[in-house]
Simulated assay, not measured.
Amino acid sequence: MAEVTASRLSPLGKPYSELKHIVNADGQNLYCKYWEPEEEPIALVVLVHGMGEHCERYDRIAGALTKHNMLVFAHDHVGHGQSEGIRLDVKTFQVYIRDLFQHIDVMKKKHPKLPLFMVGHSMGGTIAILAAFERSSLFTGIVLSSPAIDVNPVTATPFKVFMAKMVASIIPQLPIGSLDPNDVSRNPESVKSYSEDPLVYHSAIKARIGAQTVKGMERIRNGLSDIRWPFLLQHGDEDKMAEVSGSRLMYEKAASKDKTLTIYEGSYHELDKELEEVAAKVVGEIEEWIVKRLPSQNSQEAPEPEAAADDKDRKEDVEVITATAEDRKEEAEVNTEDVQPEVPAESS
């Protein structure tokens, strides 16, 4: 049952009549955010935020895209930010995907001819991938920032995962763990902002959302070889919140012709809020990747979701950006290699 006050106020005490919002299929108000360009939009970009945070934290990425006349939109998931719902609890992960499609359909109805891109961070990356599994033809391209795809084999052993699922079915809101703000970024200002943000969830992660997220990650790993849509993966190799192994696995197994993996060495979880020299590169890469795939920016149409390609004909581009710990003021070394890696055998 949704956590709704009699007067339908947001978690900050504002009536939804004064906030931009949509009402989902369960009758819950979801707070919406729109970053509109100064001129007529040429593309749509939907941002999908991560666990325990909210969409207002994406001004920098949105600003980089609106200057190219893209209309950027997002909403706070159920139980997050300024949306209704029990904090950090969801009966099924599919609720997040359902609500995402509802918002996308509203925007596509208003702008039916515009290409649509999606940017998903952390758990938002999990949601984005699962959404693309269901309706890949909607998206011209997808950016995944530190997506939650793989579990930590040390902290999430098969036994612990099994027990978490069992507990979730009995005591769904039982606290099972917490997120350390210091793991968000190496930038002290970003850590401070995260820690002091009243719309960020600062209490323990609950059993049901943890179990539902793990199930979503399992669905992704089982379907990686079916991915044929264009994507950019970004991940820090010191990320303690989402395993970088998941991004590597997706890059290796996906059948997409247009795919890029960028590993930011030494970086933590929220790459757009990392040390400034890293954050600038991260946002710049997102901006450049999307702009290059706008139909109007190319002599050819933007890449469409494609049929499975012969592995011998695939040519992937792997970028590894290294920011050394010894001298953060130096420009990061960029190594770009065109490789044809051996395609790993499918798991049974």
Rank of each mutant, 00 (worst) to 15 (best):
V4E: 10
R8K: 14
L9R: 13
S17L: 12
S17H: 04
E18A: 13
I22R: 02
D26N: 10
Q28N: 15
Y31D: 04
W35I: 01
E36T: 15
E36P: 01
P37R: 04
P37H: 06
P37S: 10
E40Q: 14
P41E: 07
P41W: 08
L44T: 02
L44Q: 01
L47M: 13
G50H: 00
E53L: 02
H54K: 00
Y58C: 03
Y58L: 08
D59W: 03
R60K: 14
I61W: 01
A62G: 06
L71T: 03
F73D: 04
A74R: 00
D76Q: 03
H77G: 11
G79H: 00
H80L: 01
H80G: 00
G81Q: 02
I86V: 15
I86R: 09
D89M: 10
I97H: 09
K109T: 14
P112Y: 08
H121W: 05
T126I: 00
S137K: 14
F139C: 08
F139A: 10
F139V: 07
T140S: 13
I142F: 02
I142W: 00
V143P: 03
L144T: 04
S146A: 15
S146I: 08
N152F: 09
P153D: 09
P153N: 07
T157G: 08
K160G: 06
F162D: 05
K165N: 12
L174N: 01
I176T: 12
G177N: 06
L179G: 07
D180Y: 06
D180R: 12
N187S: 09
N187T: 09
L199G: 04
Y201T: 07
A207R: 03
A211K: 03
T213C: 08
K215P: 03
G223N: 15
S225Q: 14
S225H: 12
D226P: 01
W229C: 04
L233R: 09
M241R: 07
S245L: 01
R248E: 14
R248P: 01
M250F: 15
E252C: 07
L261Y: 03
I263Q: 03
S267H: 01
Y268I: 05
H269S: 00
H269W: 02
E270P: 00
E276C: 06
V278C: 06
A280N: 11
K292L: 08
S296A: 15
Q297P: 00
N298I: 05
P303Q: 09
E304S: 10
P305Y: 08
A308E: 14
A309Q: 11
A309E: 11
D313V: 09
R314Q: 15
R314F: 09
E316L: 13
V318E: 03
A323I: 05
A323T: 08
A325K: 12
R328K: 11
R328W: 07
E333D: 06
N335A: 13
E337H: 09
D338S: 13
P341E: 09
V343T: 14
V343S: 05
S347D: 15
